[in-house]
Amino acid sequence: DVEPGKFYKGVVTRIEKYGAFINLNEQVRGLLRPRDMISLRAENLNVGDEIIVQAIDVRPEKREIDFKYIP
Rank of each mutant, 00 (worst) to 15 (best):
D1V: 14
D1P: 13
D1H: 14
D1G: 13
D1E: 12
D1F: 15
V2K: 03
V2I: 15
V2F: 10
E3D: 06
E3K: 14
P4L: 14
P4N: 08
P4G: 05
P4M: 12
P4V: 15
P4R: 12
P4Q: 10
G5V: 03
G5C: 12
G5R: 03
G5H: 05
G5M: 05
G5P: 02
G5A: 02
G5E: 03
K6W: 05
K6D: 03
K6N: 08
K6F: 07
K6H: 10
F7Q: 04
F7G: 01
F7R: 05
F7I: 08
Y8T: 01
Y8C: 03
Y8W: 02
Y8S: 00
Y8I: 02
K9M: 08
K9A: 06
K9P: 03
V11G: 00
V11F: 08
V11R: 09
V12D: 00
V12Q: 00
V12R: 00
V12A: 00
V12W: 00
T13A: 08
T13E: 05
R14F: 05
R14H: 08
R14D: 02
I15E: 00
I15C: 05
I15Q: 01
E16H: 09
E16A: 13
E16S: 13
E16K: 07
K17P: 14
K17E: 12
K17D: 10
K17N: 10
Y18G: 07
Y18C: 09
Y18D: 08
Y18A: 07
Y18T: 06
Y18K: 07
Y18L: 07
G19W: 10
G19M: 09
G19H: 08
G19Y: 10
A20D: 01
A20M: 09
F21S: 03
F21G: 01
F21W: 15
F21M: 08
F21Y: 14
F21N: 01
I22L: 03
I22K: 00
I22S: 00
I22H: 00
I22D: 00
N23I: 10
N23A: 15
N23C: 14
N23Q: 14
L24Y: 01
L24N: 00
L24T: 01
L24K: 00
L24H: 01
L24G: 00
N25V: 08
N25S: 14
N25W: 10
N25M: 07
E26W: 14
E26K: 14
E26M: 11
E26C: 12
E26A: 15
Q27C: 13
Q27P: 04
Q27T: 14
Q27E: 12
V28N: 05
V28W: 15
V28A: 04
V28Q: 06
R29S: 13
R29Q: 14
R29C: 13
R29Y: 09
G30F: 06
G30P: 02
G30S: 11
L31H: 04
L31M: 08
L31C: 09
L31P: 04
L31A: 03
L31V: 07
L32F: 04
L32W: 04
L32S: 02
L32Y: 03
R33I: 11
R33W: 07
R33D: 05
R33T: 05
R33L: 09
R33S: 07
R33H: 07
R33Y: 06
P34Y: 15
P34C: 14
P34M: 13
P34L: 15
P34A: 13
P34D: 11
P34V: 15
R35Q: 12
R35D: 11
R35S: 11
R35A: 12
D36P: 02
D36R: 04
D36N: 13
D36I: 08
D36A: 05
D36V: 06
D36Y: 10
M37Q: 05
M37H: 04
M37S: 05
M37G: 07
M37P: 03
M37I: 08
I38H: 13
I38E: 12
I38Q: 12
I38L: 09
I38D: 12
I38A: 11
I38W: 03
I38N: 12
I38T: 13
S39R: 13
S39Q: 14
L40A: 07
L40H: 06
L40N: 07
L40T: 08
L40W: 07
L40F: 07
L40P: 05
R41E: 10
R41H: 11
R41C: 13
R41L: 14
R41K: 15
R41M: 12
A42F: 15
A42Q: 13
E43C: 14
E43Y: 10
E43N: 11
E43M: 12
E43I: 11
E43L: 12
E43K: 11
N44K: 11
N44L: 13
N44Q: 15
N44Y: 12
N44A: 13
L45Y: 04
L45C: 06
L45R: 02
N46R: 15
N46Y: 10
N46V: 12
N46T: 13
V47M: 04
V47F: 02
V47K: 03
V47W: 03
V47D: 01
G48S: 01
G48A: 01
G48Y: 02
G48K: 01
G48F: 02
D49T: 05
D49K: 03
D49R: 03
D49N: 04
D49M: 13
E50L: 14
E50Y: 15
I51A: 00
I51N: 00
I51E: 00
I52R: 05
I52L: 10
I52Q: 04
I52D: 01
I52V: 13
I52S: 02
I52G: 00
I52P: 01
V53D: 00
V53Q: 00
V53N: 00
V53G: 00
V53I: 07
Q54P: 01
Q54D: 01
Q54I: 11
Q54Y: 11
Q54W: 09
Q54S: 03
Q54K: 08
A55G: 02
A55S: 02
A55Q: 02
A55L: 09
A55M: 06
I56L: 12
I56V: 10
I56G: 03
I56W: 05
I56H: 05
D57A: 15
D57R: 15
D57W: 07
D57L: 11
V58W: 07
V58C: 09
R59A: 04
R59T: 04
R59K: 06
R59L: 04
R59E: 03
R59N: 07
P60V: 11
P60Q: 08
P60R: 09
P60T: 09
E61C: 08
E61A: 11
E61Q: 10
E61D: 14
E61W: 05
E61F: 04
E61Y: 04
K62A: 10
K62C: 11
K62N: 08
R63Y: 11
R63I: 06
R63E: 09
R63G: 15
E64K: 06
E64P: 02
E64C: 11
E64V: 08
E64N: 07
I65Y: 08
I65D: 05
I65R: 03
I65L: 06
I65Q: 02
I65H: 03
D66L: 15
D66M: 12
D66Y: 15
D66W: 13
D66G: 06
D66N: 07
D66T: 11
D66F: 15
F67W: 08
F67P: 03
K68N: 04
K68A: 15
K68P: 04
K68G: 11
K68L: 11
K68S: 09
K68M: 12
Y69R: 03
Y69E: 11
Y69D: 04
Y69K: 03
I70D: 11
I70V: 14
I70Q: 09
I70W: 13
I70T: 10
I70R: 06
P71D: 12
P71H: 09
P71I: 09
P71T: 11
P71R: 13
P71C: 15
P71E: 12
